[in-house]
Simulated scan of single mutants.
Amino acid sequence: MQAKFTGKAIRFALRVIPSFRVFNSRPLPEGKIKDGACFSQDSRGNWFLNIVIEVAKSPVRPLDLGIGIDLGLKGLAVLSDTNRILAPGFHSKAEAALAVAQRAHKRRRIKAVHAYTARRRLDFLHNESLKIARAFDWIAVGNVNAAGLAQTSLAKSVLDAGWSSFLRMLAYKAVRHGARYVEVNERFTTQTCSDCGALPDSRPRGIAGLGIREWICSDCGAAHDRDLNAAKNILRRGRATLVAGIPVL
């Protein structure tokens, strides 16, 4: 639906829909408003107007510097350049305040705690994904099934980490900044030696191997941190995908 701003209000093309006064937390980007008729409400009852704006495409950067990302629960992600993004655990930190509010049956307080936790998580994910999109020309991540894991015993940790939101942010911010985003098959990325490419007998395997965080390749002798090794393998697979010319975001 067509809409345009007139002062501090937004006016729709149809007469049956009135003008709405809105508070701009930040200036809108330059571009044509394609849709401005989508409203949403948060857990505290606050209303938001979601606006779709057509903006100019960013020029695609040369594929010079890439990064592989392995998602985790104790840490949000391990990068192939050895950097790590810690998982703040916003929900776990708010559990005490939430429990007090629930025992006292304070519904407004419960909603406020949930909303505050969600805002903090989103702000954190926005900042971290933006840093990566700006720093690297292409981004490779494993095709982890976050929605599937959210139905298992790991649901609480997966949802608190915000994997799905993080990947979604990486995808569209990469496009916005002229970078490439590609998801690759993460199967055996923790077990494959990132130095020689072998699947050695000494690799951590099965449920028993989940607790093994460091291992040595019996084929070439390379010592590996489990998560960093996976990130390096994801980087290699991402590079192979881009070189092969497979369409990516």
Rank of each mutant, 00 (worst) to 15 (best):
G45I: 12
G45C: 12
G45V: 12
G45T: 08
N46M: 05
N46V: 07
N46F: 09
N46L: 10
N46D: 14
W47L: 14
W47T: 11
W47S: 07
W47G: 02
W47D: 07
F48W: 14
F48M: 05
F48E: 03
F48C: 10
N50V: 08
N50G: 07
N50K: 09
N50L: 09
N50I: 13
N50T: 11
I51T: 12
I51S: 09
I51M: 12
V52W: 07
I53T: 03
I53F: 04
I53D: 02
I53E: 01
E54I: 02
E54L: 06
E54Y: 04
V55R: 01
V55M: 10
V55K: 02
V55D: 07
A56K: 08
A56G: 08
A56Q: 12
K57D: 11
K57G: 00
K57Q: 12
S58F: 12
S58L: 01
S58P: 05
S58C: 15
S58M: 10
P59E: 14
P59R: 11
P59M: 10
P59V: 11
V60N: 08
V60A: 15
V60Q: 13
V60H: 09
V60M: 15
R61E: 01
R61Q: 05
R61D: 01
R61H: 05
R61M: 02
P62F: 13
P62I: 13
P62H: 04
L63A: 15
D64E: 14
D64M: 06
D64S: 13
D64Y: 05
L65T: 15
L65V: 15
L65K: 15
I67C: 08
I67H: 04
I67G: 07
I67W: 00
I67Y: 03
I67S: 04
I67T: 06
G68I: 02
G68D: 01
I69N: 01
I69K: 02
I69T: 04
D70N: 12
D70F: 11
D70C: 11
D70K: 11
L71K: 03
L71M: 15
L71R: 04
L71Y: 07
G72D: 06
G72H: 03
G72W: 03
L73Y: 02
L73V: 14
L73N: 01
L73Q: 01
K74W: 02
K74P: 01
K74F: 00
K74Y: 05
K74L: 10
G75Y: 11
G75F: 10
L76C: 05
A77Y: 11
A77C: 15
A77D: 05
A77L: 11
A77T: 13
V78T: 15
V78M: 13
V78S: 08
L79I: 06
L79Y: 07
S80P: 03
S80N: 03
S80C: 08
S80A: 08
D81I: 06
D81H: 08
T82V: 09
T82G: 00
T82L: 07
N83L: 11
N83H: 10
N83W: 00
N83T: 10
R84S: 08
R84E: 06
R84W: 00
R84A: 08
I85T: 05
I85E: 02
I85C: 08
I85H: 04
I85Y: 09
